[in-house]
Nucleic acid binder design. Structure first.
Length: 299
DNA sequence: ATGACGACCTATGGTCGA
């Protein structure tokens, strides 16, 4: 199962690019961020025609997240992070797909810093850390994928010098990301490429794409059951090079749902995948989300 | 310190993103 995250920077403006990528790479699960459209502007019919079920949490102009699943309907388990009922931003949506709990997140940018936007970023991060712990404790296979708006280390950027004051590189932002990892999450891209610089974002300015002046800010975090299933990870860089591209490229991980590295294997995955309290209220839909994708990935 | 680019909106420039 190939699971990807892609900050699309405007779902309507980027629909042709999205469909071309879905066609060429055929990801099984997709987390989208920055829809920049209300739910009424979500091109559900086009996405369905491409063979994907979808759930979305939109908002006018800003933010907006969605989860797509090939030949399946994601079973929504949550929208919005717990911890602040006054938070109006559409930045989190979560679903069960093929027995994996998938959290799709768009962490606040936080610029300019210092200031209220940076405070909001750190507060949102704290809520994420608290909720991520709950997810870990649930024992389910979980992936937290999205645009974290954090460059984890100086190795994750072409040159930190001109970004030193940016919210993405602040020690406070990095400390939050480190604390999240310390809970027991595996950073899929960094684990796959321990010694290589890997980027997922190149801004539109100063020919940064042409010069490969990128940042790694889109991350796929895997809890232990999912980390044991990881077979590959990467970035679909070609997407960034297309005309009229988003400033991000899709990042992905390939999971072997049928042969985890240890002896727990698929029975353990299936057993733990569906019993969550979050999924309980969706019990009528369980059978659809438990159905594996008809088409084998062969991975 | 600013702006480079691009997307969005009861727009025609302001605001936001990263």
């Amino acid at each position: 199962m190939k699971l990807a995250t892609f900050n699309i920077n405007g779902i309507r403006s980027r629909l042709p690019a999205l469909l071309a990528w879905l066609e060429r790479e055929a990801p099984d699960v997709v987390c989208l961020q920055e829809l920049k459209a209300p739910d009424s502007g979500f091109p559900e019919a086009d996405i369905n025609r491409a063979g994907y079920g979808a759930i979305r949490h939109g908002q006018v102009s800003w933010n907006g997240v969605a989860i797509l699943a090939k030949d399946a309907q994601p079973v929504e388990t949550r929208r919005g992070l717990p911890g602040d009922p006054d938070d109006t931003h559409s930045r989190y949506i979560e679903a069960a797909v093929n027995g994996v709990l998938v959290g799709c997140l768009y962490l606040p940018n936080g610029n300019p810093q210092p200031g209220p936007k940076f405070d909001y970023k750190l507060a949102w991060f704290e809520r994420l850390i608290a909720y991520a712990k709950q997810l870990l404790d649930s024992g389910h296979p979980v992936v937290l994928a999205g645009d974290y708006n954090v460059v984890p280390t100086d190795f994750d950027i072409y040159n930190p010098r001109s970004w030193l004051k940016d919210a993405l590189l602040q020690p406070e932002s990095r400390a939050c990301y480190a604390r999240l990892l310390e809970q027991g999450w595996t950073d899929a891209l960094r684990t796959r490429f321990p010694d290589e610089q890997v980027y997922t974002f190149w801004d539109y300015f100063r020919q940064h794409w042409e010069r490969n002046s990128g940042l790694r800010i889109d991350h796929l975090l895997l809890n232990k059951p999912v980390a044991a299933m990881m077979r590959d990870a990467g970035v679909d860089r070609w997407v960034r090079g297309e005309p009229h591209a988003s400033d991000h490229a899709p990042a992905w991980v390939v999971l072997d749902l049928e042969g985890a590295a240890d002896s727990t294997k698929k029975t353990a995955v299936k057993k733990t995948a569906l019993g969550s309290t979050a999924a309980a209220k969706k019990s009528t839909a369980r059978s659809t989300q438990a159905t594996p994708s008809k088409k084998k990935t062969g991975k």
